[in-house]
Amino acid sequence: MEGKCSKYPDCPAPSHCHEGNEVATCEFWLANNSKVETKKEKPIKEQKKSNLPWTGEAFLVDDIPMVSFRSSPIILGIVGKADAGKTTFLAMLYTLLLNGKTFDKFSFAGTKTIIGWDELHHKLKIEKNDVAFPDPTDPRYHRLFHFALRNREGILKDVLLSDASGEAFSLWSQNRENTNAEGARWIYEHSHGFILFIDCQDLIDAKNSAKTEITDIAQMLKHDLHNRPVIAVWSKSDKKEQVHAKIKDTLKEELTSMFLNYTELDISNFPTDEPDPIVHENNLRVIDWLLSQIIQPVGKELVVDLPISTDLFLNYKGNE
């Protein structure tokens, strides 16, 4: 019986012990009371709630109103199969900005997801001669990373970059309605422009079957695309030379014929030179190109060419 001595029912333990022992060492007491106390799980000390409207972490879809209240954000969809370097591309973008590289026509006006960005950047730091690289993106959800950018005219643009797992895209490329491809579907529906990842390493290793997977995703993207821009990025391009020329050329050809508003760029995370354009320039140029396609310059002001006539009535221009 808990709380009682197992030998002497009237033993006053735990205050004293009939055997003259310390209660903690008395075998008769312990026989009844040695059960490891199952502590009730203490409620985690309630963290003081932040009184800031944003957490700094990457957005989920529900967080979009945190920027959409002030402008309609431009959503850029990052599309490609697993391990193609999609999340690392995001990590590299922020890392380059931290190192003083800039977008072409925009300055950096802030971000609501700075902790999210910084955590990605952390994975590209070199610690003890070692780079961790971002973990594969959790297939259960997709995240969005935010930049506020200001153009030369001082106009603010909010940009959201998607980060969904490659599995979602592979499933979606086979069946648009696949229940586990929600992330891919959302990105496809809502993005204003797309970055399609071509993994050079995968093309080297899996050759034509890797190529087919890319064209499958591209096909799905093409459906109902309208004029949304697509940029194909050849990731891990430091190895592009090793991709079989035939695979490279035919893939390029197929993609070019598939999309109307299309370009491509080589990117890499491993500079072999300082500076190395495929690392230090091209990662940022991917975003520059998409934004230049999405944000169309406001058309020229209409100039009305008035015929000059000797007729006073026709020449009348109000109170000019």
Partner: peptide, 24 residues
């Protein structure tokens, strides 16, 4: 970070020692 040094094989092949996150 990997953008500001030339990374060689030994940077990527070692065991990945995860360093605790600290904000930049």
């Amino acid at each position: 970070d990997i953008s500001n040094i030339i990374v060689t094989g030994h940077h990527t092949q070692g065991q990945t020692t995860e360093t605790p996150y600290a904000v930049a």
